[in-house]
């Protein structure tokens, strides 16, 4: 469905220098530096997949999305999406994709949402019957009934995002690119958006590529993640694998009756300690969690224990550190 083969892209960035003299000089002549935005990126995405595309700010996520949606032309490499090369035949190709830029609106600000949908129908030349069917489905699954007649400027961010996603699906695309679809949303809206992405993926078989900084999005939606940093591909595989490979730490929180002896256990680090409460970090490569609990209960009179896996966020932070990105 989507196949990228050693895509590279670099940008020329003007050097900005300080000082009046330098600034005056820059009026006439500017030094440029080449920034490698993407370096040899290859991956294949099959029909019906939901792929989380993650990486820190400036890693090249948006650049990749822009190349895949035909906005940018890469410097090198091949890209084939549904048999098209995105940057050639732009008009023919973009009929098949939907794109949501989370930070920008594609709706007309001052008119009711439904008017925007009608205009998109005309832009994409969707037959009236098909349009009605799609619209009914979208209204139902995204619960748009009450907001569809309000002007966009009166909608909350969450309501607007639901409309944005609906707008990108008016023409029944087979691929959906979501660039930070949950940015700035409250918990309820986030869950609604996730639920909907899942629904269209399962019921219509839409292939979804989404970028996000919210790891909960990834956990809820994507069974595959692609991690990129500084323009290079760092990891491509299941989220579970990622957790197993890098999530080697667990946290134990223990409450016990007043006790002053040290609870030093090999393979653990004490994160926090009081005579009645302790938080330990366990390196599961060195010691089993069950062993830690046994040793703990030998040393103190336990009242309560909670064990937490390392949150995916931490794993990502650790990963970024490990790859020095």
């Amino acid at each position: 469905m989507i196949k990228l083969d050693s895509i590279t892209k670099s940008f020329k960035v003007a050097k900005r220098s300080t000082g009046l003299l330098q600034a005056t000089k820059a009026l006439f002549y500017r030094e440029h530096t080449i920034v490698e935005a993407l370096n040899d990126i290859s991956f294949t995405i099959n029909p019906g997949e939901i792929v989380g595309y993650i990486g820190p700010n400036g890693a090249g996520k948006s650049t990749t999305i822009k190349i895949m949606s035909g906005i940018l032309v890469p410097d090198g490499g091949k890209c084939s999406i549904m048999g098209f090369t995105p940057w050639k035949n732009r008009v023919e190709y973009v009929k098949n994709i939907g794109v949501v830029f989370g930070q920008r609106s594609q709706l007309w600000w001052d008119v009711p949402v439904i008017d925007s949908f009608e205009l998109l129908k005309d832009i994409y030349n969707v037959p009236t019957q098909e349009y009605k069917k799609t619209l009914d489905l979208l209204i139902e699954t995204l619960e748009l009934k009450d907001i569809i007649n309000s002007p966009v400027r009166q909608l909350s961010l969450g309501q607007r995002m639901r409309c944005e996603i609906a707008a990108s699906l008016i023409h029944n695309p087979q691929i959906l690119f979501l660039d930070e679809p949950t940015i700035g949303l409250d918990a309820v809206s986030k869950i609604a958006v996730r639920q909907f992405i899942k629904t269209i993926n399962q019921e219509k078989g839409v292939t979804v590529v989404l970028t996000t900084h919210d790891m909960n999005d990834i956990e809820a939606l994507a069974n595959r993640v692609i991690l990129i940093g500084k323009g290079s591909l760092l990891y491509d595989g299941k989220l579970e694998e990622l957790r197993k490979r890098f999530g080697t730490h667990k946290t134990i929180t223990a409450d016990y009756r007043k006790n002053t002896i040290s609870i030093d256990i090999p393979g653990t680090t004490i994160l926090h300690w009081t005579p009645e409460h302790a938080v330990l970090s366990i390196d599961t490569e060195q010691i089993l969690t069950s062993d830690v609990i046994t040793q703990l209960s030998n040393k103190v009179d336990l009242i309560d224990v909670t064990i937490e896996s390392q949150p995916i966020e931490d794993i990502i932070v650790q990963l970024y550190k490990e790859f020095k990105i």
Binding site: V94, V99, R104
Partner: peptide, 14 residues
């Protein structure tokens, strides 16, 4: 400036 030209490019019209 607003980056809306990208939107223009992902729509199948001139």
């Amino acid at each position: 400036i607003k980056g809306d030209f990208d939107r223009v490019l992902v729509r199948p019209r001139s």
